[in-house]
Nucleic acid binder design. Structure first.
Lengths: 232, 232
DNA sequence: TGTACATCAGTGAACGCGCGTTCACTGATGTAC
DNA sequence: TGTACATCAGTGAACGCGCGTTCACTGATGTAC
């Protein structure tokens, strides 16, 4: 894509900045991310970084987008070889999220942890990459539903008109025709999955409480997939 | 308790330091918490704070303990007036956690969000207050089980010897006799609850995605309590 | 193909600000006789 | 009850470090004629 040497050098430097930023995120956390430190590692005077990045916040935004895409790519890659069976594919997706999060705790924290004080991710830029995983999940909910793999709760939960309207917007956006109860349970699964993963990554249970966390996660996911409506 | 004027003044100043620290946590985040800033607000020269607190990390520890206790107190207070019905009491507990978290996002983030880089909470001091809510939950699981309100999943999940051993330790520590499947589902409920709450507090769904988040939370909790085994 | 001009990456100094922690000190409060 | 001494809260200066951002500048790269 970049044609002239200068343009190629620029693209390379841009990549380097994000890579170095990632490393600083991992070692010092998002709040301590500093353009001066990035410049030092880049081997350049601090003001030079401003040729590439308008401000510290813009670098944070680049890292947020980079993180969402890395997670999305990891999930997509894991699903490529998975069997065409919605429950199994949801499990594969969940495992991929957890594995990525455990391997990249700082990036995971940037995306799903405490917000960075004084920083608001610009929705126009982060929305698309930020919804990749939930979009994939929704599609799998749709498949499971169409194939009759899900049992509706009995009695059906009562959803107010206002909230049902929100669900309708989601249905239209994703072009999926899921009933209200499934949207509800789907968003419950989604939020719960991030609870399980955060519990592991942020070490919410004490260090040695559970002998085998991988196994615990499998059991937890099984419980949550039952909750979604898969017949046991 | 403190008898001499000097001791009373000391206790008061200690309280002030924690109170000011809480305010800074809320406005600037844990990573930016600074003893100098606390000293400024306390109306005292920066080195004076070292008469009360050994280091910045020690102040963080005080705030962690303070936070866990505030959450524990909020939950206990909510349960005082609640009916003697395990499912209802679990709902009340969950609502209390969420309400507290939404009212105190910074403190919630300190306890359950991204770890503060370079800081490790000393387990000897934070363990006790840190487990208050889960201990209360476990007791409610126990009550529900004894009263026959819960249906075991069928088939029962298979738990390895190692993990079952971890469950046994928990059973002994809390003096409760819950079967493995219930410990599993209990810890799933616990982690999922914090997923739902984090989703709300850290704004994981976009701002206006759901018309009524309180209602959504009720629906989500209903789904999770079904998952635990309450007959619908 | 060669020249003139425009673009751009990177420099170095500066502004004004923040931080944690140590240290020798003063003066007030508490205690033992 | 009074005095001598010990304890302790708070001061102010200092050390050595960090940060984001702006600005006028040099020298290399790219482009239009």
């Amino acid at each position: 894509m970049p044609t002239t040497p200068r343009a190629r050098a620029r693209a390379q430097t841009m990549e380097d900045i994000v890579r170095i930023g990632r490393a600083h995120l991992a070692s010092d956390g998002a709040a301590a991310l500093s353009l001066r430190a990035v410049a030092r590692d880049l081997g350049v005077v601090s003001s030079a970084v401003y040729r590439y990045v308008r401000s510290r916040d813009e670098l944070l935004t680049l890292l947020v987008i980079d993180g969402y895409n890395a997670l999305g790519d990891a999930v997509d890659a894991a699903l490529v070889g998975a069997p065409d069976e919605p429950r199994e594919r949801l499990l594969v997706l969940a495992r991929a999220v957890r594995t990525w999060a455990l391997a990249e705790p700082a990036r995971y924290g940037l995306l799903f942890g405490t917000p960075v004080p004084g920083y608001d991710a610009p929705a126009e830029q982060t929305m698309m990459p930020g919804t990749r995983v939930i979009v994939t999940m929704q599609a799998l909910f749709g498949q499971a539903y169409e194939r009759g793999l899900l049992t509706a709760p009995d009695p059906l939960p009562v959803v107010s008109g206002a909230l049902s309207g929100s669900f309708e917007v989601i249905r239209r956006e994703f072009g999926l025709d899921l009933p209200d109860w499934l949207v509800t349970r789907g968003v419950t699964l989604w939020a719960s999955l991030f609870g399980l993963v955060s519990g592991d990554v942020f070490d919410m249970y004490g260090g040695g409480t559970f002998a085998d966390r991988d196994e615990l996660f499998e059991l937890q996911m099984a419980a949550l997939l039952d909750m979604l409506g898969f017949r046991p």
